[in-house]
Amino acid sequence: MPVTTEDVAQVALLARLSIPEETMEDVTGRFTRVLELVAELQQVDTDGVVPMSNPHDMEQRLRADAVTEENRRDELQKPAPSVEDGYFLVPRVID
């Protein structure tokens, strides 16, 4: 299935990536080649095969409902690019 630059632009929007106009053709070309490779999946008959999400058939372990974390805000916010009064700041969002 051929992929157009519009398709790639749409996927980039979903992924919140900005692809410069001048590289769009190249990105689309490489993208297409990867899709051609993964198209080999279609050679395999998977009728009735249960999808596998994890290598082992293990079950989720449960954690006791206990508070084990204390307030480490100052430390945890150190890597943050923009913080004020304990809030992370982003450009104004309009709801």
Binding site: V8, L17, V34, L41, V44, T46, V50
Partner: peptide, 26 residues
């Protein structure tokens, strides 16, 4: 990221991601 986003997106999940998870089991 682009390829992964595409493989999960509406209309392609079954043909790519689910299919890959099935082949993974095989």
């Amino acid at each position: 990221i682009l390829v992964g986003t595409y493989a999960l997106s509406a209309g392609f999940y079954d043909a790519y991601f689910k299919k890959a998870q099935q082949v993974r089991r095989i």
